[in-house]
Design a protein around this nucleic acid. Structure first.
Length: 186
DNA sequence: CCCTGATTCGC
DNA sequence: GCGAATCAGG
């Protein structure tokens, strides 16, 4: 695959949106994330608003130097537009405030969740990264904390378990084994 | 171990 | 110009 004009366009668009190189590569197809990153660099659009793995190289250069950085661009950091993405992430069912009046999906409410699991969640919330909606990625814990209607709202943001939408602690309370709720004798 | 982006360098 | 290999970090 070659970098056709519109493939580059897609690259730019997605990179600008904060998509990861691997996601872009996957979208484009026929290229690896390395190819994408390489292209990004060649295009000169490397740094964007705070990226996870970018800190290292952006901060200091371990081995290579000789990078005059050319012309310092007084480029303003463009903030990505916030899109109101309604992602239901199955809230912990604590405060039942639904701004739009959406009927709450069937939630486990505060049923028989292991006290240990709850305690764990509480502990985790203290060290949560408290990320915003935009910062959610495929692999950040999407567990919402707080009241969506207030400023006191954020997502856990810790590293998810591969294949799961939540971090380990939150997976624990999100996916209850049916055994713990199955007790109705009939 | 999973992932992230950055850099190098042979092609 | 391209991107695999490698690096460095979370």
């Amino acid at each position: 695959m070659s970098w056709t004009d519109d493939r580059v366009e897609i690259l730019k668009k997605m990179w600008g949106e904060g998509q990861s190189a691997s996601q872009i590569a996957k979208e484009l197809g026929g290229v690896t994330r390395n190819a994408v990153i390489g292209k990004v660099h060649r295009l000169g659009l490397s740094n964007r608003a705070g990226t996870t793995g970018a800190k290292a190289a952006a901060k200091d250069k371990p081995k290579a130097e000789a990078k005059p950085k050319a012309a310092p661009k007084p480029k303003v950091e463009a903030k990505p537009k916030v899109e109101m993405e309604t992602k239901s992430a199955m809230p912990p069912a604590r405060k039942a405030i639904i701004p739009a009046g959406q009927p709450l999906p069937p939630q486990p409410s505060a049923n028989e969740i292991s006290p240990e699991a709850l305690a764990k969640v509480n502990a985790v919330e203290k060290k949560a990264k408290k990320i915003s909606l935009m910062e959610l990625t495929e692999r950040t814990c999407k567990w919402p904390v707080g009241d969506p209607a207030t400023e006191d709202f954020w997502f856990c943001g810790l590293a998810v378990q591969p294949g799961k939408p939540y971090c380990e602690a939150h997976v624990g309370v999100a996916f209850q084994p049916m055994s713990s709720r199955r007790d109705r004798r009939r």
